[in-house]
């Protein structure tokens, strides 16, 4: 079957029961998507499917044909971090980093849908991504700063 991941076509053979997380990691060696529970509880494996954040461990790869899959590998360019990634770095929204790719994907999806989310919207939208190190305050600040910067840039135009 043909999968479109980060804008590129991938021709893969997958088992009927195979999860998207498993296809990404084991067949395509795209190891940026981490797996924390493999049963839809922690959000670590979050990727975007048609711009909506999903737990890739719960999505069957067979259901993804013709859909837009975006993973952490497609977020930064070769030389430049995405604004969300940059904000995570400067705000120290990262400790062990294991949940971070999933957090970044959820934050990107949120900001693409709401340019200036309220505090409650950020908390709610990010609540499906667990972080055991407790980076939540810093993640919140990072997401807010990106939203504020984008609005400011828009105002200046």
């Amino acid at each position: 079957m043909l999968l479109t991941i980060n804008g590129r076509p991938h021709d893969v053979h997958v088992e009927p029961f195979e999860s998207l997380a498993s296809t990404l990691r084991e067949r395509l060696q795209m190891l940026g998507t981490k797996v924390g529970c493999d049963r839809g509880e922690c959000g670590t494996c979050t990727v975007l499917l048609d711009d909506v954040p999903v737990y890739s461990c719960l999505v069957l790869t067979r259901s993804c044909e013709g859909r837009r899959i975006r993973t952490i590998e497609g977020v930064a360019t070769a030389n430049e971090l995405h604004p969300v990634q940059r904000a995570f770095v400067t705000h120290d929204a990262v400790q062990c980093g294991y949940c971070t790719p999933g957090q970044v994907m959820s934050a990107i999806a949120l900001l693409e849908q709401h340019a200036l989310p309220s505090d409650d919207e950020i908390r709610r939208s990010m609540s499906g991504n667990l972080c055991r190190c407790g980076c939540y305050p810093k993640i919140h600040a990072a997401v807010k700063s990106v939203a504020a910067a984008a609005v400011e840039a828009n105002d200046d135009r």
């Binding site: 952490i72 930064a76 971090l81 990634q85 770095v89 120290d92 990262v94 790719p101």
Partner: peptide, 19 residues
């Protein structure tokens, strides 16, 4: 100073044991 391995971690390039 922001942590030295933050860029690796936010891009998914940091390698953990399962990787």
């Amino acid at each position: 100073i922001p942590r030295v391995d933050a860029a690796e971690k936010v891009t998914g390039r940091a390698r953990y044991t399962a990787d």
